[in-house]
């Protein structure tokens, strides 16, 4: 399905952050990942902040003067199947985490380009994406 407008773009971002946050909360208490528990707790907290940031953007950065449609942007490449970490091994979990971060960064990068007509929204997406980039750096250092 295409993402055709401001609300659709931010709603997808919110859903993505929620899905990721829930996964991070789950793996933070997974005994298999106990050595990385604090890291994932932190990622979940970032997710919560990103959700608030996206909701605020959706409320505050909308104007009917520039409520133009978005073209050529599709959900499919950014959809990630919801996984149950209890049915996954450590390696699988880490691989999935990498996938989550990569898709979030890609989504925010592409989304920021697609909504350039609303520069504050574009900026907000870049800010959210930056947080996810920091995750990948932390993961590679862990």
């Amino acid at each position: 399905m295409p993402i055709i407008n401001f609300g659709g773009l931010l709603n997808f971002a919110e859903a993505m952050e929620k899905q990721d946050m829930e996964f991070y909360l789950s793996i933070a208490s997974n005994p298999e990942m106990s050595d990385l528990s604090d890291l994932f707790q932190g990622f979940a907290k970032d997710g919560k902040k990103n959700i608030a940031h996206i909701q605020r953007t959706r409320r505050e950065n909308i104007t009917e003067m520039i409520l133009e449609g978005i073209t050529g942007f599709f959900r499919k490449p950014f959809v990630l199947e919801v996984k149950d970490d209890k049915e996954m091994g450590r390696a699988q979990i880490l691989k999935y985490v990498d996938k989550m971060e990569a898709r979030a960064i890609a989504y925010y990068t592409e989304g920021a380009k697609k909504i350039k007509a609303l520069p504050e929204v574009s900026m907000a997406l870049k800010v959210a994406g930056k947080k996810r980039m920091a995750h990948t750096q932390k993961l590679s250092g862990s």
């Binding site: 407008n5 609300g7 959706r58 409320r59 505050e60 909308i62 009917e64 409520l67």
Partner: peptide
């Protein structure tokens, strides 16, 4: 209550939810 008001507006008036949000913003 922003989102809830916007959804109520769309439900009774018909405009798309982004337009309802823009209206509540204004």
């Amino acid at each position: 209550n922003f989102e809830d008001i916007a959804r109520t507006l769309t439900m009774e008036q018909g405009k798309i939810i982004d337009e309802a949000r823009a209206e509540i913003r204004r």
